[in-house]
Design a protein around this nucleic acid. Sequence first.
DNA 1: GTATAATTCAACCATATGGTTGAATATAGA
DNA 2: TCTATATTCAACCATATGGTTGAATTATAC
Lengths: 125, 125
Amino acid sequence: MVELYTSQLDTVFHALGDATRRRMLLELAAGERTVGQLAEPFAMSLAAASKHIKVLESAGLIRREVRGRTHLCRLEPGPLATAHEWLSFYERFWNRRLDVLERLLREEDARNASDPKQAPEGDDK
Amino acid sequence: MVELYTSQLDTVFHALGDATRRRMLLELAAGERTVGQLAEPFAMSLAAASKHIKVLESAGLIRREVRGRTHLCRLEPGPLATAHEWLSFYERFWNRRLDVLERLLREEDARNASDPKQAPEGDDK
DNA sequence: GTATAATTCAACCATATGGTTGAATATAGA
DNA sequence: TCTATATTCAACCATATGGTTGAATTATAC
């Protein structure tokens, strides 16, 4: 499973590495938008916004439907889910730390609650 | 909450947008590694790998402890969790789609099970 | 103290990125 | 058909990125 989607993760994470594009994605999560609507909040040329949209599109994060002279964009959640899943790997590490923390707290509790001597169950390997 | 960590997300997602750096992170999830150990699997100069490590470091994804002449690196899961959380926004969208799908399937079931007429509870607004 | 090992620094290079502007394309509307 | 709207294209620019090589730094080992 690890590093199977390599180039897709490259393009997806790269696309996410820009605040403009992240804002666009959030906007699209609320519903479909035209290129002009997506560009409107930003202080940049339409051509620049158009490039951002193309980055999102070629990362597979959005789909575009040409409707007459306007282009309707909609979010494509698949690649986001892929990135999300990849990122989950850290939870193994994170949870391991939380487990350690939890054990330490439990030991602390036991020490305070029962008696002032050392808690016997402390296997501090 | 949205776009509060802006510049951190920029650097974190940028750091993740490279397969070399993602491999390094996975390696570090298994335990701490020196710069040399991190660089070893890659067909690139040590200086290049060192740059990658610095990118991970300035994104806050790893911490470095200088131990004598070797530098020990360890994973810092906080920023990964932040990125993971940001990515969760899409689940709202995703779940909405699943909800719609589920509702449609339920309606379909109801139609087939009870009688061949239109199911009355179909509020297809 | 000198050699060796681990790592960074500095200079350099090719290519990518994110922005601009002005022209081009294509559709909609009068 | 003429005009306005929505969007892209092309050329250009400054800066960032990812890589190289060779020298510098720093700590260990003998």
